[in-house]
Design a protein around this nucleic acid. Sequence first.
DNA 1: ATATTATTGTACCATTATGATACAATATCC
DNA 2: GGATATTGTATCATAATGGTACAATAATAT
Lengths: 260, 260
Amino acid sequence: MQRSTDLHEFLNSEQQWLPSLSVDCVIFGFHENELKVLLLTFRRTDLLALPGGLVHRQEDVDDAAKRILAERTGLTDIYLEQFHTFGQLGRGSDHFGRKIAGANGVDLPADHWFTRRFVSIGYYALVDFSRVVPSPDVLSESIGWYDVRELPSLVLDHSLIVQKALDTLRLMLDHRLVGFNLLPETFTMGDLQRLYETILGKKLLRTNFQRKMLSLEILERLDKKWTGGAHKAPYLYRFDTKKGEEYLNNVDNRPERINT
Amino acid sequence: MQRSTDLHEFLNSEQQWLPSLSVDCVIFGFHENELKVLLLTFRRTDLLALPGGLVHRQEDVDDAAKRILAERTGLTDIYLEQFHTFGQLGRGSDHFGRKIAGANGVDLPADHWFTRRFVSIGYYALVDFSRVVPSPDVLSESIGWYDVRELPSLVLDHSLIVQKALDTLRLMLDHRLVGFNLLPETFTMGDLQRLYETILGKKLLRTNFQRKMLSLEILERLDKKWTGGAHKAPYLYRFDTKKGEEYLNNVDNRPERINT
DNA sequence: ATATTATTGTACCATTATGATACAATATCC
DNA sequence: GGATATTGTATCATAATGGTACAATAATAT
């Protein structure tokens, strides 16, 4: 995989990019009842930011999001979903771009392209952060997971972007069954419940959660799982892709409150 | 209100605009059990398109959407909501821009800015089309309402944009109570039901719809309405803004299916 | 006046979904 | 074999929803 090149090269790369547009990725990491977000710091600064980047002149924006995530964090094969585009005035990157360049000994000319305004398209994803090893690119000093409940302050409007992504994730949780692409191929009902609880930020009643999930008829029950714990072994389940598609395609399963 | 200027002026206006970005508005019109979309044809062509436009260099994108809608259709004070950004390759406007210019006797040079690629931010709104008089701007030959169930073919990817907007509208219908900003100040339960039925594209059971709406406790019951019809007079209702806000702010009213 | 008509508001019942508790089943450890 | 922690299911009470019935009531026709 092609990783980002260095800052000087980047600052001279205006011709490569679609002007005015950027992409920012909110990668939620789930593990052990914690929900975290992947953040980078820029070299020689302590500025925290979402992994983001620019779109090539001849590149589908969805593809750009995947490429940017890969280049900046090393993460590949992750399902990204667009959720909102941020185009407020005052998310201008003048101060911001100048600060980053400055920290690396570059004094940007008054009208340098990187100091101009960008409108940013937000994408989000949900991964199991114990099974993913992000690595920072050359523009970045560090990369790491930060708990969503105590997020430090971020560059530009990135805090707002994270908040909007989280709202969308919660809203879409069972509409899109987004959870299933971050569980292992097979999982227990407890695994699934912990995922839901972490994303929704609240406890669910075990028995009713189980009843509900089984009633959706999108899970295939497999063998039991003998973990070595001193207790009854839980069943393993697999997400039944075919039934899952049917479920999602059924208009009646949309989360609308008016039915009859 | 400033309306759009002529084509030649527009084609020389590159400096005004944020490059690569456009906005398209999907205005749904509701009246008498019909759901329609507002479309324009470009001058001297029969190309149908959504009202769209470009963003000024120093202009909030949400503001740009409102301005564009006003300039191109004459509609003002309409609540627009962003729903998706369209950035596929191949929605390129080369062929498209050249066709429009050509129809008006302008032969665009090979790399004219208007033939380049645009990424478009989609906004939608819902209005009562009997109470709104759109008028086409100078770029357009005509403006009119088209039934969503039998949409003619549109320019670029505008059919896709309409479909996505409609999906979003239906999904958000009672989550955001989006319907209320297009009913008159006071309305009957029948009015409200017809609105829901038209947007959802299906019949609802009168008695249960009434029960549901009343149970939300966001409607204020007023006097009866004597229409002159040979039947019992229905109550009029007003949307109670304060209670409505409370309702929308209550997380428990989000359309999630996993509760306990 | 009175009957007729169309529509509305509400009551009511059957069915389904949800919140909550109880309890038997069972892998492992001791 | 008994203790322990967890899981799967049953069950009950309550709430929400789908569906029907019916009385109330503005206008109109008689």
